[in-house]
């Protein structure tokens, strides 16, 4: 499979701490690639650099053949690189419909339109409704985002990212803080995205990771120590020692 995202020797330092220490990573077109690692391994820092909200100190990021290392956040989004946030970032006072319509408007361009009333532009809201249906929020269109339950907010978060019609979607811990029922629903939703876009998934829930991912990369102390299929990762010696812990390995065996 062709590679969609290529990270080449990426480095990010915060003072004396090297949060990203020479990360080289390929994400193939069409796969679900999971990024796992213990707390503080630098997963979110890496996602920030790929999305464009943090600039790396060294190394390169290529997306779909284009060097995006120094490209701004909104231009990356227009190229098809979208992210959802670990801590939900929504338009809290606005309805689900308006939340999604923003993302549709951003993608369809012509924001420098000063005269025609946007409220009459039905295509914006038609697509917002379709998106709401895709993330299971069709019956919540008029609710302000801040009144949604946590699981619903997470799904809206993904809806906002989907509205940009990404080729690569960065999902930062989509299951964080969800109960078992909501988790199962989210895993189904993420699994359903497979046919729409490539996914780079950061997640702590190992059951979900091993169920969803085509390939898994393991990040420890800012370095990728292994990349492989879930089965390969499960038996990888270094990964077991550094991350999964022997008891998990025993439990799996």
């Amino acid at each position: 499979m062709a590679e969609l995202l290529h990270l080449d020797a990426l480095v990010k330092r915060f003072g004396g701490l090297t949060a990203t220490d020479g990360v080289t990573l390929d994400v193939a077109d069409g796969e679900i690639h999971a990024l796992i690692g213990p707390n503080g391994a630098g997963k979110t820092t890496l996602i920030h650099q790929i999305a464009g909200s943090l600039a790396p100190d060294a190394g390169r990021i290529r997306f779909n053949g284009v060097d995006v290392t120094r490209m701004s956040l909104h231009l990356r989004t227009q190229l098809g690189l979208a992210r959802s946030y670990q801590v939900v970032s929504l338009f809290r006072r606005l309805s689900v419909r308006d939340n999604l319509a923003f993302a549709v408007q951003a993608r369809t361009g012509s924001t420098f339109q000063f005269w025609r009333a946007a409220a009459d532009q039905q295509p914006l809201f038609d697509e917002a409704r379709e998106l709401a249906a895709r993330v299971d929020l069709a019956d919540r269109l008029d609710a302000p985002a801040r009144t949604l339950a946590h699981g619903e907010q997470r799904r809206l978060e993904i809806g906002l990212a989907l509205a940009t019609r990404p080729r690569l979607l960065l999902l930062d811990e989509p299951l964080a803080g969800l109960g078992p029922e909501e988790s199962a629903r989210m895993v189904d939703l993420v699994s359903g995205l497979r046919s729409h876009c490539t996914l780079l998934l950061v997640e702590h829930d190992m059951d979900a990771v091993f169920r969803l991912a085509d390939r898994v990369s393991v990040l420890v102390n800012g370095r990728i120590i292994a990349t492989g299929t879930p089965d390969e990762i499960r038996v990888h010696r270094e990964v077991r020692r550094a991350y999964l812990g022997d008891d998990v390995a025993v439990h799996d065996a």
Partner: peptide
Amino acid sequence: ENETRMEAVGFPV
């Protein structure tokens, strides 16, 4: 309402 989010969905803020 949310400047960072506007940028992340692709607006030239």
